[in-house]
């Protein structure tokens, strides 16, 4: 009986740790989306598809052009950042004064475009980088090295964004716009330029997430659907535009998925997470950390 509990605890601990590692990645995804929402007041439904394009970028850079992983990553990040800026200029900018729901639907159209572009251009085969990182063994626990790397890189990425937002002029302007978009124009801040910079930054975060996800998952045109919805739920749960809330919600979600998956199938972990989300909408409709009005 005692041996049963030992094994059980080891699995539990492993699941908790894996949850934390997953949480780092989800927090990174949520950060990009929250940034866009907080500053431009737009939800990019196609955010996960930008990540998907970034994953394909990594795949082709590494497999076809023979670049090393670390040389390919900055290129992929720049590529997705450019895509983000382009998305803003082509789709969001003409709709800035339209109803918010139209902006949401237009990015939904972009989701279709990116998915089917990937289908047409890259085919529907599952592809992977062919890089297999070793498993780390701590006692009886097995942790994947790629997850650890992703966690560390996600944390570093978030710290860099934090420093950018607090220590640079552009970052300060971005935070100011998020607080009051009317007044900032009077203060001599070019809102249009800030929006493009923010979109590129959001894209760069998606690109970073792509570089990390491609280590763990195969790429296919519909891969975005497997983590896109989760990312939106995390942002809503944390309160759209609330960076800290999104961070907390990402780890909560990751733990629910990881622990739920321990006791049953992985899908039930997701079902639990979704159900938790809907229950939380009853209790805290404006987000986890929102004060009750």
């Amino acid at each position: 009986m005692s041996s049963f509990f030992e094994i059980f605890d080891i699995y539990l601990l492993e699941a908790v740790l894996n949850g934390i590692l997953l949480g780092g990645l989800l927090a990174l995804l949520a950060l990009g989306l929250n940034l866009i929402f907080g500053v431009i007041d737009v939800t990019w439904i196609c955010y996960a598809e930008l990540v998907m394009i970034g994953m394909y970028g990594m795949y082709y850079l590494v497999q076809y052009y023979g670049l090393s992983y670390y040389a390919a990553a900055p290129i992929a990040i720049l590529l997705v950042a450019a895509l983000g800026a382009l998305l803003h200029l082509l789709v969001i900018a003409p709709l800035l004064s339209a109803a918010p729901i139209n902006q949401l639907l237009a990015t939904g159209g972009v989701l279709f475009v990116l998915q089917s572009f990937a289908t047409v251009a890259f085919g529907i085969d599952f592809r992977n980088l062919g890089i297999r990182l070793p498993l780390l063994t701590l006692g009886d626990m097995h942790l994947s090295y790629s997850r650890l790397l992703a966690f560390a890189a996600a944390l570093i990425g978030m710290v860099v964004v934090y420093l950018f937002m607090t220590r640079t002029f552009t970052g300060t302007a971005i935070r100011a716009i998020a607080q009051d978009r009317q007044i900032m124009a009077l203060m001599g801040v070019d809102a249009k330029k800030i929006y493009v910079v923010t979109s590129a930054l959001g894209g760069a975060l998606a690109g970073l997430a792509a570089c990390l996800l491609v280590l763990q998952y195969d790429v296919h045109p519909f891969v975005g659907l497997s983590f896109g919805p989760i990312t939106f739920l995390i942002c809503v749960l944390g309160g759209l535009g609330n960076f800290v809330g999104g961070f907390v919600a990402a780890f909560l979600f990751a733990e629910i998925i990881s622990l739920g998956g321990l006791f049953s199938d992985l899908e039930w972990g997701y079902v639990l997470a979704f159900a938790f989300f809907i229950v939380m909408m009853f209790i805290r409709p404006a987000g986890l950390l929102a004060r009750r009005s």
Partner: peptide, 21 residues
């Protein structure tokens, strides 16, 4: 044609929302 129909849909959707809501 796999994917082309959705590509056309997507472009149409964006164009419609911008120009013909």
């Amino acid at each position: 044609a796999v994917g082309w129909d959705n590509l056309v849909y997507g472009v149409l959707l964006v164009v419609f929302i911008i120009f013909l809501p």
